[in-house]
Design a protein around this nucleic acid. Structure first.
Lengths: 140, 140
DNA sequence: GGCTAATTCATACTTTCGGGTGAAGATTTC
DNA sequence: GAAATCTTCACCCGAAAGTATGAATTAGCC
């Protein structure tokens, strides 16, 4: 951002300097105001467009690769830590038993977590839960 | 796009007209060239930025979407059409029964396809199959 | 025509999931 | 300290999913 401002300022100074230079160097004093306005308008419109690209480029990147957990959505749905852990594990394809082993709890516990999760996500199968969780950006 | 150009042209005309108006209306003829350049520069930079946003917005949408099926991988794994259809449907969270209804076959058939699919993908659960299929770029 | 692969289906059996209910301890919140 | 929430676990039952085996049909290929 600082770089952008610097380049912008330098361009502005450069343009004005250039015009002054032409004006005095060749003693051409009768550039019409419209000419100035035109040149400046076109030039700074281009700079503006370039700046616009600059400002939006970040958004483009975000959509592509990285994943940001939507914690608001988590709270909004009332999903607890433990439930979220289970969600992450079913998303990777683990069975209830495997999840129980990983979390050092019984299968029954995993089942309860899942049942609550299904309620909160409003689904009835783990595959649907994964699907929905992804659309909510709860998991990558 | 046409709308953008129209708005752009109208803005330009409006600005010049406004300046001329002020100039003649109040007989203020000594606006410095720097003043004009400044106003025009700022104004058109803003327009340019706005245009830049306009131009990039579409790209943002495009980046999110694309998915290219890796057909080579499909053949490499020896996955048939029907098996692939079933794969697509389990990925969306459908049950075997639902898939059977959608494809107008019996649940047993779906099970057979799935069993073969699991062999070819080297997994034992549908969630794992989805996971692996995504990593192979077989499904979005 | 014969071969192979794909698609279809069935039957039977095991395992996993999901739903429902209840309940106890821990932690947080008011 | 009482209420609410979270975490934990148990038991039961039925439905869904997965495994194994066998078999009929269709379609494509040489």
């Amino acid at each position: 951002m600082r770089k952008t401002i610097l380049i912008y300022g330098a361009s502005m100074a450069g343009l004005i300097g250039m015009m002054k230079y032409i004006e005095y160097r060749y003693l051409i004093r009768d550039f019409s105001i419209e000419f100035y306005v035109g040149v400046v308008a076109i030039f700074f419109t281009m700079i503006g467009i370039w700046a616009g690209f600059r400002l939006t480029r970040k958004k483009v990147v975000i959509v592509g690769a990285p994943f940001a957990l939507d914690e608001d959505k988590l709270q909004q749905l009332g999903i607890s830590r433990r439930e979220y852990e289970v969600l992450e594990l079913i998303a990777v394809g683990h069975s209830n038993q495997e999840i129980a082993d990983k979390l050092f709890v019984s299968v029954n516990t995993v089942k309860t977590h899942l049942a609550n999760l299904f309620l909160k996500l409003d689904v009835s199968r783990r595959t649907q839960a994964i699907q929905k969780a992804k659309s909510f950006r709860l998991i990558p």
